[in-house]
Simulated scan of single mutants.
Amino acid sequence: MITPAEARERVARLYERKMPEWTVLGAAEPVVDIPLHPPTQEKVLADPGSVADWIKDWRVAERGLGDGGRLVWESRQWANAGTQRMPTRLVLTEPYDAAAFVSRKGHWQAAESRAAELRILLNSHQDTDAAPVEQITDALRRRAKKIADLDQANYVRVRDALEWLLKNPQPGIYPRQMPIRGVDSKWLEKHSTLVDPLYAAAAGTSSLGLLEPPGLIRLRFLDPELAPGNLRDLAAPAAELSRMSVVPGSVVVVENLQTLLALPEIPGAVAVHSAGYAGRRLGDIAWLGDAPLLYWGDLDVDGYRILSAVRGQLPHTHSVMMDRTTLAAHRDLAGPDRKDAPRTLPDHLTGTERDGFAALEQLGGLRLEQERIPWEYALEQLHRGLSRLPKPDMW
């Protein structure tokens, strides 16, 4: 016997799974037709009380069904139990009826009305000349749950942001300049999983055309004589750093900020903080192309990939402590790398670096963060690496 509570669990699971499709594509009727497996004569005779309670519970549940919901009742005639009238099936005609049965009526009404409103908005601004990034119907279906789960204020912001962006393509302003109450850079970042794909489905491009703050690259002048205006520690966009008049004798690129801050004075040297894949922007700093450059990053998959990206722009880059010897000597300080770390060998690595990359996997999928290497050892290797850098006239 299927109880009303068990039926609600089934319908709730069905609603969660099918709601996105129902809101955008509609639903075949009825959306729910559940056999209730009424009791046999043996069950009635063995436990008439529980059977009576079961029928009573379904009568109570039936009174709460909307116009599109119904119970199918049938009479059963048994030789030893007489005639019993009992529910045999639960039928819910439309998604609204299923939502109401599991107390999600308001959720369904929001999902349905919002999907319809956004479909009209996106279709009315669709760029038919551009190849669609994603069909509007598919984009709405995939985000229907997130759309329905928004509180009303944030839904209105999503709708208004989409409408403004579609009316003002490629505006070239910062998010905080958008004339929409409550929409700023933080809001847009938080709701980008809705705004970005829905915009792309209509506009045919994944770019909203909004400006992003320029990434800053941090420098420390390890030689005070090179520091402009005695500013030994500064951060600026790559384009602005490129305009500086500086001719260092060597450049040390490090991945860890505390490593950058801890480096001692070194005659003729400038240190650069390459935070993660920001190293890809180093090629935009013109004077780095003329300076002997030493790279020291984390001994992990990402560290080698960043090194590859830097060397792809600055081919004269040399590395230090990016080898099997360093990893093996400090294996006790290493930990597991992330499980999804790509194992494809990066481009632009030397033979020693390729061997170090292979050692990561061979020694157990390890990563050795730069800051874990003992400081005295690191300084010794850095000075040795700097002493071996070729001069510009040797390239």
Rank of each mutant, 00 (worst) to 15 (best):
I2F: 13
I2T: 08
I2C: 01
P4K: 06
E6I: 15
R10P: 02
R17M: 11
P20M: 12
E21D: 14
E21R: 15
E21S: 15
T23F: 02
A27V: 02
I34P: 00
P38N: 03
D47Y: 15
I55K: 09
W73P: 13
S75L: 02
N80P: 07
N80K: 15
M86N: 11
T88F: 10
P95G: 01
P95L: 11
W108D: 13
W108M: 13
E117R: 15
R119S: 09
S124I: 14
E134W: 06
A139T: 02
K146D: 15
D149E: 10
N154G: 02
Y155E: 04
V158P: 03
R159G: 00
L162K: 00
L166M: 03
L166C: 05
N168H: 12
G172V: 10
Y174G: 05
P179H: 01
S185H: 01
D196L: 06
P197Q: 10
G204L: 12
T205N: 13
G209H: 08
L211M: 08
E212Y: 12
P224L: 07
E225L: 14
L226A: 05
A238G: 05
L241E: 05
L241H: 04
R243E: 07
V246H: 02
V246T: 12
G249S: 08
N256A: 10
L260W: 03
A269Q: 02
A271N: 05
V272Q: 05
A278I: 14
L293Q: 09
G297I: 11
G297Y: 01
D302H: 06
D302G: 08
Y304M: 11
V320G: 01
M321W: 06
D323A: 12
R324W: 09
T325D: 15
H330W: 08
R338G: 06
D340I: 07
P346Q: 12
D347N: 14
F357H: 05
A359W: 09
L360R: 00
E361P: 01
G364T: 14
E369R: 04
Q370H: 12
P374L: 10
E376Y: 06
G385C: 07
S387F: 11
L389Y: 00
W395T: 04
